[in-house]
Design a protein around this nucleic acid. Structure first.
Lengths: 301, 301
DNA sequence: CGAAATATGCAACAACTGTTTTATAAATCA
DNA sequence: TGATTTATAAAACAGTTGTTGCATATTTCG
């Protein structure tokens, strides 16, 4: 519980005040507060109405939130946030100190792993990978249906791609049935469809077999894999590569997940309006199904 | 002369632009410019009229200065200064949210997304998160058994954690059975076990219910979630936070996956020898099962 | 169940925003 | 010097700001 207090102090008394009273807020106030907790500087940098727009609440909700937190009004609230920026700006020494502390702490494995993962994803921004991503998004967009295949360690990536795409529409089919039925959906696949295969070394045999079967059915194979000499390269029409090395003795899939998310982003951005419409649809369905906690039951669940 | 150039570069391109054209300005413009050079953040933090008042010039002078510096107007000038604050404060998580135009056609979206993801994972190296990760690894290591729970978008993270952990031994149980049996493994859970729950906003009701049920059975709840006001925070003994903001309109889980991999890494590193032995074991089993392509069949599969 | 209380969306408000125009003063130059 | 350009101040402008009161849902409770 001490660490909770420490965190509050670290992030400043404004955060603390919001978190403290969060439980007593109404649904809308919570939504506004949540957005402010995630983007504190924006309070001082944009107008209230714009902030409200970004948070998805009414302008008046912001005024109400400010008063709820016992500020005289939103302008008071805003001024406090501006002060935080002011002191942290010329508090150059403070920032240097923080960095120092981080460096001293930097012996830890967690620190090194995160640094490594960040750098690997950063390196994906090279022109070759970017153009490969764009091309693959093009292929995916043109396909009638997308079969997504990723087994074992790559299951997480494949499933996440499929999940996000489901929210954006109904183009993807996830090849991961139970009881050995993974490949069954391919029965009705045609040459208009594509197979998005994800695999890393060591390459799962089942993935390769299914991919080969799909190719013989006339499907285009698109691959996300870890190496130029991956077996998927030879049968795929287009490939995107990602690194898997990590400081540990197992492979990392964070870069692969990043690649998959970028593809989703590119696909969604091709028709923002349609994507947004689909998202709204999914939203309505899920709330009708009572999937999510709408009001957040903080105390008595 | 070198120190002049260096100063310009240090303080950023906005300062440089002002200094460069300073000599050509009229008296009033210089007075305005001088004030801005001395208080750069104020441009973004107060209104133009107030800034003009503080600088001792007319409001219109500020507009004229902005146009003199070849901005489209003062609002453009102000937005640039806001961006400087944003990047120096927390990277640029919030920036993309406003930029509808640039993101509209998806121009360079891949590049920007990767840059953002990399920065977000980089920021996880702050001392608080590191210490939270270490503490959570401690808790996980002490537990007799680890039940892993992550539904919907968090399924990928939960499953990946479980998958890696199974390669390292047999401590984890994945709560994601078919046909609504997710919670069944908890039947034989005791207070020696822990539940690792992963959830982001909007929070899946089923996750919260299962977590609450586990807590009532005496299990410690460990949470990986997206906010200090996540409903998991109140019922969890320890929490690690990660960001989910992305340039698209769906959340990113790459940082969450990074967190999960770091935890695996920390756990494995506590007993390298044992972990390696388990890995060998898994290796032998999988090759006996003919799971992977051993020789890479590049041409003829 | 109905009544009281609360939460939320909406529209109107005056105040203030950044910008532009107009009038006046100062500087420049033939 | 007087004509002409330039610089500045003041005022007017449309658009936006933060705020408030009111009508309508929604929740709470006897």
């Amino acid at each position: 519980m001490t660490s909770y207090v420490r965190q509050m102090l670290q992030k400043g008394p404004l955060h603390a005040r919001i978190i403290e009273r969060f439980d007593d807020m109404s649904e809308q106030l919570q939504q506004a507060a949540r957005h402010i907790l995630e983007h504190p500087q924006e309070v001082a940098l944009v107008s209230m109405r714009e902030l409200a727009r970004n948070a998805g609440v009414q302008p008046s909700t912001m005024t109400r939130l400010a008063k709820f937190l016992e500020f005289s009004g939103y302008e008071d609230f805003r001024e406090q946030h501006a002060d935080v920026i002011r002191v942290s700006a010329d508090g150059f020494a403070a920032r240097a100190l923080q960095r120092e502390e981080g460096a001293a702490n930097g012996e830890g494995l967690a620190y090194r792993m995160l640094q490594g993962l960040s750098a690997q994803i950063d390196r994906l921004r090279d022109p070759d990978t970017i153009s490969r991503l764009d091309t693959m998004a093009e292929h995916l967009a043109k396909a009638r249906r997308i079969f997504v295949l990723g087994l074992r360690s790559c299951h997480s990536v494949a499933w996440h791609f499929h999940y996000v795409m489901t929210l954006l529409g109904e183009k993807t089919v996830h090849l991961d049935g139970p009881a050995g039925t993974s490949g069954d959906p391919l029965i009705r696949a045609t040459h208009e469809d594509v197979l998005l295969a994800i695999s890393i070394n060591p390459y799962s045999l089942q993935t390769l077999e299914l991919a080969e079967a799909a190719r013989e059915k006339g499907l285009s194979i698109l691959a996300i894999t870890d190496s130029e000499v991956s077996p998927l390269v030879t049968i795929a029409e287009h490939v995107v590569f990602f690194p898997t090395e990590s400081q540990t003795f197992f492979h990392t899939l964070a870069p692969a997940l990043a690649v998959s998310e970028v593809l989703c982003g590119l696909l969604a951005s091709r028709d923002r309006a349609a994507a947004l419409k689909e998202l709204k649809l999914a939203d309505r369905h899920l709330s009708a199904m009572n999937t999510y906690a709408t009001s957040i039951p903080r105390r008595k669940i």
